[in-house]
Write a protein that binds this DNA or RNA. Sequence first.
DNA 1: AATCCTCTTAACCAGCACTTAACCAGATTC
DNA 2: GAATCTGGTTAAGTGCTGGTTAAGAGGATT
Lengths: 233, 233
Amino acid sequence: MQQVPKIKVLLAEDDLSLGYVIKDNLVDAGYDVILCPDGQSAIDKFDKNEVGICLLDVMMPNKDGFAVAKKIRQQSDMVPILFLTARSMEEDKIKGFQSGADDYITKPFSMQELLMRMEVFLRRTRKMHSDKTVTFTIGQLNFSYTDLKLTIGQEVFNLTQKEADLLKFLCEHSNRILKREEVLLNVWGKDDYFLGRSMDVFITKLRKYFKADPQVNLETIHGVGFRFNTPAL
Amino acid sequence: MQQVPKIKVLLAEDDLSLGYVIKDNLVDAGYDVILCPDGQSAIDKFDKNEVGICLLDVMMPNKDGFAVAKKIRQQSDMVPILFLTARSMEEDKIKGFQSGADDYITKPFSMQELLMRMEVFLRRTRKMHSDKTVTFTIGQLNFSYTDLKLTIGQEVFNLTQKEADLLKFLCEHSNRILKREEVLLNVWGKDDYFLGRSMDVFITKLRKYFKADPQVNLETIHGVGFRFNTPAL
DNA sequence: AATCCTCTTAACCAGCACTTAACCAGATTC
DNA sequence: GAATCTGGTTAAGTGCTGGTTAAGAGGATT
C-alpha cells in the first residue's frame, strides 16, 4: 500500500470537549491533528511546511479565528483555512474576512459534513495551487522547488533556479536511467557539447549537497547518463 | 469568492468573435459585461451610474474608440477607459487622446494581462468608494494601505500610491518567492523591461524604510524575484 | 508659468549565475 | 598498455541582473 504522508490539521477550538471529539474523528479519518485550545497557541504551532489545512473556531479567547487567520496568511497564502462559526454569525462578516483559500462551516455540524467539506476543499485548493507548491521528500532530504530550498538535516541550501530545475527533473525521474541528452533537452531545452559540460558542473554541485545524506546518490552511467538513486518509500 | 456587486464592463469591439471570447473570459472572472459591436451602440448603452470600466476597441465602424471616449467623458470623467489598440498604432497618437483615467493595451494581449490591467486600474477608483481600511502589522511595522502610512517604531513614512500598492502586494504574499514578472503583472499590470527597472527603484525605496526594522527584509532571489521575509509567528 | 510631486528612464557599477576552459582520472577500445 | 573518450572538478571568463542615484517627463497645484 502506498504510504501517503498524513495530512496535518491545525485545529483551534476552545471548547475542549468538542475539540477532542473532532480530533478523535479526524485521527480516525487518517489525519494528523494538532489541537490548540486558543488562538495564540494555534499561531505558535503553525508551520507552513507542515500544516495542510487549518480549522479555526471563530470565537475563541486570546485571538479569535480571524486574527489567527490573518497571522497565518502572513506565513502562507495557500494553506486552506476553514472557519468554524456559530449560526448566529452574519454571513457578510465572514465573507469580509475570507480570502480565496478560505471557507467556513456553521456549527453545529456533523463529522461527516466536516470531513466532506475538508476533502472537497483540500482537493480544490490543491488543484488551484498545484503549480505553486512543489516539494519532494526523499530520504532525509527535503526539497522545495517553489522556495528553491533544499534541506538536509539541519543544513539548508539555497538553490539557484537552474539547480532547482535540474534537481526537480531528477526527483521526478528517480531510480531510472536518464540519458544525458534527455536531461539536457528537458532542463536546458537543447543539447550541445558545451551545455553538456555545463550540466556536469551542475551535477557536481548537486552531489556536494547530497553528501549530507548517504541514502541518496547520483550515479553515473558511463556513456549514457545518470541514475538518481533514492530510497524506496 | 467575492460577492460584492459585480462590476459592469462596457466592452466595445467590432470583431465579434474576439468580442465574445473576451466577454466570456470577463464573465468567468466575475464581471458583468455589456458587449457592443460598434461605437455608437456603446455610447447608447453607457450609463455613468452603472458602468465601472470601459474597454474600447480603437478601430471600429460607426465612431471609433476615441470618439466614444470623448462622448463618455462628457458624462463622467471618472470612469476608467482602457483602449484596445492594434500594435501598428503609434504610441503618440494614443497618448494624445488619453486623459488621466485612460490607459491602453495592445492587441494581441493575453486574457491574464487584460484582467490584471483592469484590476490595477479599478483598484484606485474602487478604493475611493470602499470605506474598508486595509492595514498590516508585521514585526514592529504598521502599514495602513488606506492611509498610505507606514509606521515603524517612532518613524512615520508617508507613502506614495505606487509604493503602497507594491508594499501591499508584498505583505499579502510574504515569506514566499515572488517572481519579478508576478509582481509587475499584479502591481503595474504589465511586464516590460522599463517597468522592471522602475520596480527596482521602488524596491530600493521600500528597503530604506525597512532599515528601521531588522525583523523584516526584502531579499533578492537573483534571476527570479524577491521574497519579503517577515518574522515567524 | 512656476513649483512640486510622482513615476519612469537613464547611467553607472557590482555581484552573481551560468558557461567555457583547462586539467585530470577512470573507462573503454584496440 | 597506449590511445582515446567520457566525465569529474576547479577556476576563469562573460553577460546579465539588479542596486543605486540622478535626470527627465508629465500632471497637478499654486
